[in-house]
């Protein structure tokens, strides 16, 4: 589900980045307070982040399909560390994957953090997992809660991917059909994520039940609603602001020309100097009769060849020992 930079526009990336940064800031403050009471929290978060990364590389067989799946870890981390510490931990894993393994883009990082970390740790865990699992979960409850939360997290993630690519204007496919394509794939991945989470949590409950954070206070609904409203408002404001900046209205120069001439497109006068210049340009142009797009491609190719040549000259030479 890692979105590449190619699939988002700068406006969408900036909006998602701002929302994710706000939430990470809030998580940072919460964890700093938590850290004062529990000094083991910092190494615990660091090592569990590394654990999630390693666990993602170990696949399990999906019965009847011949394929395999792996853990994503949002729900598992939330059940072990609490949602805010889990958000920070999963965010660090996603950033590490982006920076060291080029898995997901740098500009799309905000989108990826929102789609994978925020939706699973701050939405699916408190609103789906906790109410189903309850304070004293049995293995059956853990399985049901993990499956439901895994499916909800992945479906919300798929919906967010569709919205982000549609708002970026990347795909010509209508949003409804795109969602119809994404939803079944992510339903299967969600079931895999839920089953994997349940398998690990059941094993943890059997061997070290004290590690499961069932003692967390119930979320204050009014406070959560206020927080969600603030973030939705923030996203709308930022979205509106960026879409205004990137609007298709004429820029300052075009606006001035439009005021003067009534149109933003100007045609060259047919007097002698202009006609001579046009003839000269026609004669000196490398590809006069070709389509401008093709000519542009050839021109770019030539520029790139020059750059590659220059780059070879610029490369520092290493003396062989």
């Amino acid at each position: 589900m890692h979105l590449s930079d190619a699939l988002v526009s700068p406006e969408v990336a900036a909006t998602a980045g701002a929302v994710s940064l706000l939430l990470l800031g809030a998580a940072g403050r919460k964890v700093s307070r938590q850290r004062r009471d529990d000094e083991r929290l910092v190494p615990l978060m660091g090592v569990t982040g590394a654990f999630v990364f390693a666990a993602q590389m170990i696949n399990f067989a999906i019965p009847g399909t011949g394929s395999s799946g792996h853990l994503i870890g949002g729900i598992l981390l939330s059940a072990l560390l609490g949602p805010w510490a889990a958000l920070l931990t999963l965010a660090s894993v996603i950033i590490l994957q982006c920076l060291l393994f080029a898995d997901g883009g740098l500009l799309a990082l905000g989108c990826n953090l929102f789609n994978m970390a925020v939706l699973s740790c701050l939405v699916a865990y408190p609103l789906v997992y906790r109410p189903i699992a309850g304070t004293n979960p049995t293995p059956r409850r853990i399985i049901a809660a993990s499956l439901a939360a895994g499916i909800v997290a992945l479906q919300l993630g798929a919906l967010a991917v569709v919205l982000e690519t549609e708002l970026s204007g990347i795909t010509a496919l209508p949003a409804g059909r795109f969602l119809l394509l994404m939803s079944p794939i992510h339903l299967l991945i969600g079931i895999g994520e839920g089953a994997g989470t349940a398998a690990v949590l059941c094993a943890v409950q059997r061997y070290r039940p004290e590690l499961l954070r069932n003692d967390l206070p119930r979320p204050n609904r009014r406070k959560t609603a206020r927080l969600l409203a603030a973030f939705v408002g923030c996203a709308l404001l930022l979205g509106g602001l960026f879409s205004w900046i990137a609007s298709s209205r004429p820029d300052g120069l075009e606006w001035s020309v439009e005021r003067l001439t009534g149109t933003t497109e100007l045609t060259a006068p047919a007097d002698a100097p202009h006609a001579t210049a046009a003839r000269l340009q026609q004669r000196t142009a490398l590809l006069p009769d070709y389509d401008t797009s093709f000519a542009g491609l050839v021109g770019t190719g030539v520029v790139l060849l020059v750059v590659i040549g220059t780059a070879r000259l610029l490369r520092p030479t290493h003396k062989k020992p």
Binding site: L24, G28, V31, S32, R35, V42, P43, M45, G46, V47, G49, A50, F53, L88, T89, A91, S92, V93, I95, L96, L100
Partner: peptide, 11 residues
Amino acid sequence: AFTTQLLFVHR
């Protein structure tokens, strides 16, 4: 808090 976390995961 966040950069420390990033360094810990890497380490």
